[in-house]
């Protein structure tokens, strides 16, 4: 079975393959498979590709190729990529988070909104494995899902002008980690001592789409003493990077 898709032009140099607007692991695996196949076969006129929840954006050299030509190639490759035809190899990575109230700046708002005590919120948040659905918005930002439904919540109505680096937030059905200090509207529930951005050669981040992530709680003392470099090295060793 293949996914239903539609290919539209988005400006002169982007062809957008669109699927139904929903968050589905199966659809994402399919989109990343199409992306992989496209990049392995047609490198010369494709400048770059970006996968989001339900779309694959293909940026191409529009002075040399027409949208119709790109559309044809994309259609052919997407049709050839069978849904779930390959077993996606994913990695399981544990990420430490300190849920101390000094970092969980929105604990009160979340207690009100979810009707749960903060300890239960932490237990639910740390008790689930999340999928890296996609990266983007900010460099190295991980879109993770899906939250336990008891934790579904609204974004802040007034986004913060500055969210500290490493902050772990939740919004809607998702959770995410801020890789750098930046503005943001997610509810903050903790902070990780590890760096999400580790530039090595032409790679920005160790994390990859479809990685599986679990959070494990650490105390404020452990947070302060945490040797992030050593921890990351351990992960690099495990995965040979």
């Amino acid at each position: 079975m293949n996914h239903n898709f539609n290919i539209v032009a988005f400006g002169e140099n982007v062809a957008l393959l669109q699927c139904r607007e929903e968050i589905s692991l199966e659809m994402l695996e399919w989109l990343y498979s199409v992306d992989e196949l496209l990049n392995s076969e047609r490198k010369n006129y494709i400048r770059e590709t970006v996968v989001t929840y339900n779309e694959l954006a293909v940026v191409y050299n529009c002075l040399a190729y027409s949208f119709e030509e790109i559309k044809e190639v994309l259609e052919e490759i997407a049709t050839r990529t069978k849904a779930s035809s390959q077993q996606w190899e994913y990695r399981e990575i544990r990420v430490p988070v300190c849920y101390d109230k000094r970092f969980a700046l929105d604990n009160k708002k979340l207690e009100e909104e979810t009707g749960l005590e903060f300890e239960s919120i932490v237990a639910l948040h740390a008790g689930k494995q999340y999928i890296v659905y996609m990266m983007g918005f900010l460099p190295g930002f991980l879109y993770l899902g899906e939250l336990d439904e008891h934790l579904w919540c609204k974004r802040l109505s007034n986004p913060r002008k500055s969210v500290p680096k490493g902050s772990v937030g939740i919004a809607g059905k998702q959770t995410g980690i801020y890789p750098t200090e930046s503005p943001g509207g997610w509810n903050l529930i903790g902070r990780t001592p590890i760096d999400l951005i580790s530039i090595k050669g032409d790679r920005l981040s160790f994390f990859k789409p479809l990685d599986r992530i679990t959070f494990f709680p650490i105390s404020k003392k452990q947070f302060d003493d945490f040797d992030a470099a050593e921890y990351l090295n351990g992960i690099f060793l495990k995965y040979g990077i």
Binding site: R47, E48, T49, V50, V51, V59, M135, G136, F137, L138, P139, G140, F141, D202, L204, S205
Partner: peptide, 10 residues
């Protein structure tokens, strides 16, 4: 930079 927007780099 081109080619790194998939990781969120502008």
């Amino acid at each position: 930079r081109m080619g790194f927007r998939g990781a969120g780099v502008p």
